[in-house]
Simulated scan of single mutants.
Amino acid sequence: MADQLYLSLWFPNFRLQALPDALVGVMRQFAVIAKDGKPGSEFGRVAAASTYPINWTESPTYQRIYVNDERAQTSADTEGSIIENAVAEATEQLHDDMAYEFEMRWMLWLPDAAGDLDIAWRLEPAKVRITGFGPDFDDGSYEQNGHIRVDFGLDTPWVLEDEELDTDAADRIKQNVEKLLAFTLSVEKHCGISSRLLWTESGEPLAEKLIARLQRLN
């Protein structure tokens, strides 16, 4: 069964004032992987930003959706979506009981059931949410979620539960896994974190699932 996939990040001696810079650092590493060597790619920019007070049941106090394609009418449409600009605007008012969420995208191979037996794979934009937590948001949930949490969506692109994968499907999954690991290792190398955890909502050990999947692909 598909499961929600997260990467939680903790920083040493963390203070709320350091959250914007920490978010920028993580989002920059994501942009490097998402852009895949394409200068000026929309995948290196922020697609949307939201600020939530107190907990997830509350309505956002700030929201902005950015236009990063040919529909953009002015330079402000794309200038605002630059990582540093989007983070600065959304975190202008830092509060202990708020969460700051930024949506970005990257390209993943996604399965599409084309028939009863065959699965076609398409290279499609996939949404990722990067959230920074104030220490009092949702009763201090950062202790479990991390100072920053990356929400990758469902884990299907990495661990499709199908024992009989053809060569094409195996190659697509391997490319997705490589991209996920490249981002995780880049954050570990460049962002000054003290610890990280790649986990699923059900609590099923993701590392074992990935290793098992890669072993079946090799």
Results as ranks from 00 to 15, higher is better:
Leu160Met: 12
Lys127Gln: 12
Leu217Arg: 06
Asp3Glu: 11
Leu160Thr: 07
Gln93Ser: 08
Arg28Tyr: 01
Met107Tyr: 13
Phe102His: 11
Gln63Ser: 10
Asn55Lys: 02
Trp121Arg: 11
Ile33Pro: 02
Val24Ile: 15
Asp21Pro: 00
Tyr66Gln: 03
Thr156Phe: 02
Asp136Ser: 14
Asp112Thr: 09
Gln73Ile: 08
Leu9Asn: 13
Lys209Asp: 10
Pro20Gln: 06
Glu208Ala: 10
Phe11His: 13
Ala212Met: 10
Ser141Ala: 09
Asp77Val: 01
Asp166Glu: 09
Gly146Val: 07
Tyr52Asn: 05
Gly44Leu: 01
Gly192Asp: 10
Glu163His: 02
Asp116Leu: 11
Asp21Ser: 14
Val159Asp: 09
Asp69Cys: 02
Val128His: 03
Leu180Tyr: 02
Leu165Asn: 10
Val24Cys: 13
Ala90Pro: 06
Arg216Phe: 00
Gly132Tyr: 08
Cys191Phe: 09
Trp158Ile: 02
Thr74Cys: 00
Ser8Phe: 04
Ala99Met: 13
Gly146Thr: 07
Tyr52Leu: 14
Gln4Asp: 13
Ser8Met: 05
Met104Ile: 15
Gly192Lys: 08
Leu217His: 02
Leu5Phe: 07
Ala22Asn: 14
Asp166Ala: 05
Ile173Pro: 06
Asp116Pro: 04
Trp10His: 15
Ala99Arg: 11
Leu160Glu: 05
Thr91Leu: 10
Asp21Val: 08
Thr91His: 02
Glu164Lys: 13
Ile193His: 05
Arg45Asn: 09
Leu154Trp: 11
Val150Tyr: 04
Glu84Asp: 12
His147Gln: 12
Ile130Tyr: 05
Gln93Val: 12
Gly25Pro: 01
Ser195Asn: 15
Gln4Gly: 07
Val128Ile: 15
Arg196Ile: 03
Ala170Ser: 15
Pro157Gly: 06
Asn145Gln: 10
Gln73Ser: 10
Thr167Asp: 14
Ile33His: 06
Trp121Val: 12
Ala48His: 07
Leu165Gly: 09
Val128Tyr: 04
Val128Trp: 03
Pro20Ile: 08
Asp168Cys: 04
Leu197Met: 09
Glu124Gly: 00
Asp118Val: 12
Leu180Gly: 04
Thr131Val: 15
Ala182Met: 07
Glu208Asp: 13
Tyr142Pro: 01
Leu206Tyr: 06
Thr57Arg: 05
Val26Ile: 10
Ala18Met: 11
Ala72Gln: 00
Glu164Ser: 13
Trp56Thr: 13
Leu19His: 04
Gln17Asn: 11
